[in-house]
């Protein structure tokens, strides 16, 4: 059963021919955005590799170790927030794609933003409690690479929140114009991409660090 026989114009989310010009017009933009995300992926990849190479006793340098600092409950809450926000982000796209229901798109975007903000709150709380236990990035190479990797992801989430606010304002002004539709698709690619990166972070950093 596959009711989506129409051509895709670029990898990932597509609007579908029902959207005419917006569908065609998004081709180069979204493909370009994919390329940009791949470049971002390399940045994360290098930070992952640096982190993986900085977990030995030399890099910990007598400072706090993962077991001293990590809070698995908080990490699981963050994971739940982010996964839920991925789902609601998808719902926002469906609301746009089918029916072009402006208020539903906005509602789902607001829910996504709230979930993202929840993620960020717990992440910052974790950072604060780590720092209270000598876990500052200046303490050791391991902590430097930890903060760089997790912090960069958090920075991306922060930018994502800013992006959602901008999109809400943009939808207010321009409704679901062709450009807004393309931008929403871009945002959803970005947001799902961040969730994929987070899978790597909680597995490599937190779970593998505590096991």
């Amino acid at each position: 059963m596959n009711p989506n026989p129409y051509p895709k114009l670029h990898p990932g989310l597509n609007l579908g021919p029902a959207h005419g010009v917006a569908h065609e017009g998004s081709e180069a933009v979204l493909f370009g955005f994919w390329i940009f995300l791949m470049s971002d992926l390399i940045i994360f990849g290098i930070l992952f590799a640096t982190y993986a190479a900085s977990t030995g006793p030399m890099a910990i340098a007598g400072g706090p170790r993962p077991t001293d600092l990590f809070d698995l409950v908080s990490v699981s809450i963050q994971t739940a927030f982010l996964l839920a926000s991925s789902l609601t982000c998808g719902m926002a796209i469906l609301a746009m794609k089918y029916g072009e229901n402006v208020s539903r798109v906005k509602l789902w975007l607001v829910v996504t933003a709230l979930l993202g903000a929840g993620f960020l709150t717990f992440e910052l709380r974790d950072f604060a409690s780590m720092m209270a236990h000598q876990g500052t990035p200046m303490r050791s190479a391991w902590l430097s690479s930890l903060y760089a990797l997790v912090g960069l992801h958090g920075l991306h989430i922060t930018m994502g929140l800013l992006w959602i606010l901008t999109m809400l304002a943009l939808i207010q002004v321009q409704r679901l114009s062709n450009k807004v539709k393309t931008r929403l698709l871009m945002f959803s690619l970005y947001w799902h991409f961040l969730d994929v990166i987070w899978i790597g972070i909680f597995s490599v950093v937190f779970l593998a660090g505590l096991v």
Binding site: K8, L9, P11, G12, W34, L189
Partner: peptide, 18 residues
């Protein structure tokens, strides 16, 4: 399921990117 990447259809060259 979220990013809708699959191996079907004609635009396979784009998937090579990933």
């Amino acid at each position: 399921f979220f990013l809708h990447i699959d191996f079907s259809r004609q635009k396979r060259e784009d998937l090579l990117l990933i």
